[in-house]
Structure formats: C-alpha cells, structure tokens
Design a protein around this nucleic acid. Structure first.
Lengths: 250, 250
DNA sequence: ACCGCGATTCCCATCCAATGAGAGTCGTGT
DNA sequence: ACACGACTCTCATTGGATGGGAATCGCGGT
C-alpha cells in the first residue's frame, strides 16, 4: 500500500475529515474522527495533525479537535452566503422585531434547504433549524418555496425520490406534493403546518436576486395555530426589501 | 518529480489555494489561483478541479471559481465563531439600534483582530472593517482591547515587532503603545481616534467568557469627533449582556 | 478572416511523499 | 495491577500525485 490503499484522493480524505463535524458534534478526538471518516488510526492522527498545523482545525485544552477559526475565516470571507446574508439582515431584523418569532433565510443546496441565518427572540417557540443546518425540501416551508420555484429537473428528482415523513403531517405522496407546489406558486408563499414538528407552522416566501431567479426563501416559524396573515404581511415587506438590496427590479 | 517537487504537503497546497481568496477577490480563474498559490499550471487545474468536485469550491457561469457553499457550511456549523456570534447578536442589535453606528465583534486570531460580525445601519459612517476581515492589534480599538487583556507573550511579540502606521495618528512607538495598553486596562475600554481612518474613532470594550478570560471585543465606529460617552454606556450594557449569555458571572 | 495569447484540457513517464501496519508510550478508569 | 483507548514513532512499500509538454478552446485585436 502506498498513497491511499482505499483509492481515495487526499482531497476526499480531507473533506471526509471535515464532514465528521456536525452541528451537534463540534469536538472530537483524532481517533473518533478517524473512525468516522473510515481512516486507519495512524493515518487519521497524521492527517488531523497536518490540518491542525495549517489552522483548518484546532486542538484545544488538550487533545480534542474542533473546527479552526481559520477555516471559518476562509469560508466566510468570500462566499455568496455572506453577500445574501448581508443583503437580508436588515430586513430579517425588522421581520423578527415585528413578528417576534424565529426568522430565517434559506437557499437551495444539493437538493436540500440550507439555512444561512436565523434570528430568534426570547419568546420564540420551538424550532429545529440551525444556522448552516439543513432540512429536506418537501418537508419545510422554505424547502417548498425553493422547490416550487426551482427548475424542472430538481422537481422531478425530488418527486420521484423518497419523501420521508418527519411528522404524521409531512407530505409524502408525490401527487399531493405536486399539488402543493402548484398552490405555492399560485399564492406566492408556502405554509407548512406541522410538517417538521407538530407544534409549529412554517411560513415562507421566495426572494429573487438581480437576475429574477428565486435565490432564497425567507421564513418564520409560528406556533401551530397562530394566524399566518400578519406574518405574511411582514414577510412580503421583508422580501421586497431584500430583493431591492440584491438589485432585483420587480 | 512526483508528489510535490516543491516539498510541500497536499494539505499545504489546499490551504494555499483557499488563501488566494480574499474579501475583495472572491472569484478567480483556475490559472490565477495557480499563479497566486505558486503552483504549476497543470497542477493548479487538477487541484482546483478536485476541490470543485468535492464541493469546497464552485465553478460558476463558466470557468470562474469561487468559494463553495459546502465549505461555508462545514466551517460554520461547528465553529466557536458561531457560538460567540449567536451569544452576541441580540446585544449587538441593541447597541446598533441605539448608537446607530457600525457595531462589531472581534476576537484574537494569529496576532490580529478577526471580525466575526458587523452590523451597520443606513446612516453609519465610514468603516473599513469586513466580516471575516482582519485589522492589526495596535491600530484598532478592538485590537487594543484584545492586546491589553491578552497574555504576556502576545504583548511582547507585538511590542517588539513592527508597528506599521495606517494613518498619521496610529501609535507606532512601543513605549507609547505600552502606555496606551495600561490605560485601556485601567479604564476598561479603548478609544482609537483616527488610528485606521482619520475620519473615524473606534471605541471598544472587552467581553469575557465563562472562564473569565477576555474572549472578544465589542466595538463601535463613530465619526471622529462624536462624543464617546453615550456609546460607551451602550457598549458596557451590551458587554454585560453578552457575558451573561456566555455564562460569565462577574 | 487571421493571428496571438492565455486559459484549459489531456497525456503519461517519473518517483517520492503519503501510507498504514506494528510496536511502544501515556493516561485514565476500575 | 490491569485493561483499554488515545496517541506517537518508525519504516518499508508503492501507487497516486506531479508537472512538462502538446493540443484545444475562446476571445480580443487588427
């Protein structure tokens, strides 16, 4: 054996190492990382050591590994995420201040909804979303918006794929989902009552960028039986504000 | 030649490639990246290709490369930056709402001040700071706070190193800097008038984490001759709020 | 249309850096 | 004392990374 007996490139390995970190598992030992990334013990230690030396990972008050600030810096300083987020922040703050519930911004990424930002007040209700976390397209209000305004291939891929339920109320039937998407397009917003957590209702609207394509979804998470109309008004105001900041002339 | 004629590891190369991206240069061609990272043309194309395939980089409306959402996601979902930022956001919003000028949060990273977050209102003045951007410790109010409350070795390193001026008013004399640091420790805040831009004054206070160590600096950027006292009051309120969220019991 | 330049892709012989088994050390919990 | 796991170090092996070169593509200039 030499350069990788397992036939994977060095890049693959680095990515696998980074992927062993999740929103809930933020510190691990080198050995744990190795096990999860499927690397032999000694290789894992060597690779982790290199990453620590380069600053992409950090070794804290001894032995445990976490994501390094350097990686955060490299990733943040020039990603679109930041531009969108910056354009959306003022509007999101306003929505959050008026609706007083979780306010979030999501984009489409690899057939899932990726959450770029989330603002929560002290009195906000339940919410499983995390910044840099993901939710399936068919089960979240943000996802439904991104899916409804996404391109044809995306919809086919999702509609023909598995539609795992998160609660008893999640849409799992392709036909029902297609109908729901048509409704979202017609209304210009998505309401997902109890799709993710039975106690919560998500409401989302599309946000268009300067090219007129739907680039993101702006959403709030209400308590299940709160009225959606007041939130919708705020979402639409916020949406327009963000679109203006992005350069979209509707 | 085989595995790197230049004697650098694959990890080094990947980091060098990522480092060619800066806050102002967010899209480049593969060839540009290669030149800046000091890689032979064909190697640069191959490496960039691998990174694109793994999702760490993205190729847009053709040929140009940018940082990938995947990298942002990996970096963001489990870094301390996020925890600190989340703890600080509500307080920062409050400070920004009342002072109505740029409000920022910085930490110490590799002998520089790294800015984690920045909130700006419509009426805010000039400000060179960027999220995930850096400023030298001796020349920014945030940096002065982080330096003043940092450990001995850090101070020695900075005081004996070069102290390049950014404006005519930046402190460049080690003795004067040492005096300034003592003042910052005594007052519990730093004022930097015209150190970075002649037209602006930075004001910063330290933020302690649950262990009692200064983990960050909370700051605002005022117009040069604005009174600092009102801002200081808000900064101190905000600082206490963040410390409480972090679990510091002062 | 033609030319030139740079970006990009493809090919492939070379060969050394990365690899991982193994043995040993350290630290912790029982 | 013992067991177990995390970690470190060494070293022979070798296949994947490397980069020079050639061909192709794309674009702006003339």
């Amino acid at each position: 054996m030499a350069n990788s007996s397992s036939g994977d490139s060095v890049t693959d390995r680095l990515v696998r190492v980074l992927e062993t970190f999740t929103p809930t598992r933020t510190v691990q030992t080198a050995a744990e990382i190795g096990r999860r990334a499927g690397l032999p013990g000694s290789s894992a230690h060597r690779i982790v050591g290199e990453l620590v030396e380069s600053g992409l990972l950090e070794r804290d008050g001894d032995r445990r590994i976490r994501i390094g600030m350097r990686l955060w810096e490299l990733a943040t300083r020039s990603s679109q995420a930041l531009r969108l987020r910056q354009a959306a922040m003022p509007a999101m703050e306003r929505v959050q201040a008026r609706v007083r519930e979780h306010t979030q911004l999501a984009i489409l990424e690899q057939d899932e909804a990726l959450f770029l930002e989330r603002l929560s007040g002290p009195g906000s209700g339940s919410n499983v979303t995390r910044i840099a976390g993901r939710l399936p397209l068919h089960a979240s209000s943000s996802g439904l918006v991104l899916l409804a305004f996404g391109d044809r291939e995306l919809q086919d891929r999702i509609l023909t794929g598995a539609l795992p339920p998160l609660t008893r109320e999640t849409i799992t039937d392709p036909v029902a989902l297609r109908r729901k998407l048509a409704e979202v397009r017609a209304l210009g917003h998505a309401v997902a009552r109890g799709f993710i957590e039975t106690v919560a209702t998500g409401v989302a609207v599309p946000v268009r960028d300067e090219t007129g394509t739907v680039a993101a979804a702006l959403s709030v998470v209400l308590r299940r039986d709160d009225p959606v109309e007041p939130a919708l008004v705020e979402l639409h105001t916020g949406k327009r504000e963000i679109e203006r900041a992005l350069g979209f002339r509707g």
